[in-house]
Design a protein around this nucleic acid. Structure first.
Lengths: 182, 182
DNA sequence: AGCCACTATATTGTATGCAAAATGTAATAT
DNA sequence: ATATTACATTTTGCATACAATATAGTGGCT
């Protein structure tokens, strides 16, 4: 027994459904404000209502769905106020993330991030929104991983997910990543 | 119709159960590492397993319970590493909280907090743990409310709840509230 | 036509039932 | 006596069934 056995990935239906539904929301298959028709989803996914509803409760708790008693779930819609509320919190978490990461990063990794950052600044200068956001996210992911704090990661991802509900995520602006980077 | 009607508090069983179980965990009726016997709880609370299980899923997602597939839920136990992981995140949120609060506090409110803070320092000096923690929490609550950011509040409370699972919450130390206060 | 009451339908909330998996126990073998 | 297997019991996961609430459709009325 000198080889580590494959960890058995035994999963439950509702867990699967949580991630599945999350993805559907992010992919826009379930759009903001839409009702979430339980029965239809059950048919689509080939499961019964019980696990699906368990998943809905979890997503409701995460803020991705609004759960109205007796009136079903709706995909959350973010008002401008909501966004203004979430951004500072994400900012604080990013700042901490950067702080923790700095203490652990090797020079090589740090250099890589600097390179990504430089490239991102370039895209920004050229107003190339799409690549800019892609790099931006990649940098955050890298820093977050380097911070090596699963709690932080979970909290951040949760908020990032909510923000993704907002169609326009313009001005995830410079001031913030400067701060996040140090 | 010149008087605002009482808002109808129409609640669902699983929502009720989420808060109920949370309280039971905080009160220590369900202790760390214990199995959570579904059937027994159902009998105690007079509900069926369906809403109870929905509540368990939510609490699992919050990190208060560990959900083991096919093996039930256990009240989460926090390792020292877990705590070390959570504290910096809470610290960051507290810092933000203080920052936001400062921008909104009236002089009177600020003075009140200073008074509380002074009193707390006194308790600390005299090594009166119990009153110290009580005041500490009161101050945090006040600042949190003053920050007027429900998202921040929710995130913070979630972490604070997890921390409450740890029996010894010694050294929620000075360095932190200095920072949180400015 | 527009508005209200009423009925029919659909959707949600909760309870129950059943199969699969895990836990506990007793009997057997070493 | 310890370890191991086989069996009985309990517990979990999921599906279904039933009751309560909301939605929508219809007809009558002003």
């Amino acid at each position: 027994m000198n080889q580590m056995a494959e960890p058995v990935v035994r999963t439950t239906l509702h867990d699967e459904l949580v991630t599945r539904l999350r993805d559907m929301i992010f992919a826009g298959e379930l759009k903001g404000g839409d009702r979430v028709p339980e029965q239809r989803l059950c048919d689509m996914l080939g499961v019964s209502r019980t696990p699906l509803r368990e998943a809905l409760k979890v997503l409701g708790n995460e803020g991705l769905l609004d759960l109205l008693p007796n009136r079903g779930a709706r995909v959350a819609v973010l008002s401008v106020d909501d966004i203004d509320e979430i951004f500072p919190v994400m900012g604080a978490l990013e700042a901490l993330s950067g702080e923790l990461a700095c203490a652990r990063l090797t020079d090589a990794e740090f250099a890589e991030i600097r390179a990504l950052h430089y490239q991102m600044a370039l895209h920004h200068m050229r107003r190339e929104l799409q690549p800019y956001f892609a790099l931006n996210q990649q940098i955050h992911e890298t820093i977050l991983r380097a911070a090596a704090n699963p709690t932080l990661e979970a909290q951040y991802r949760s908020l990032a997910g909510r923000i993704r509900l907002a169609r326009y995520r313009a001005n995830m602006s410079e001031a913030r990543w400067d701060k996040a980077m140090r």
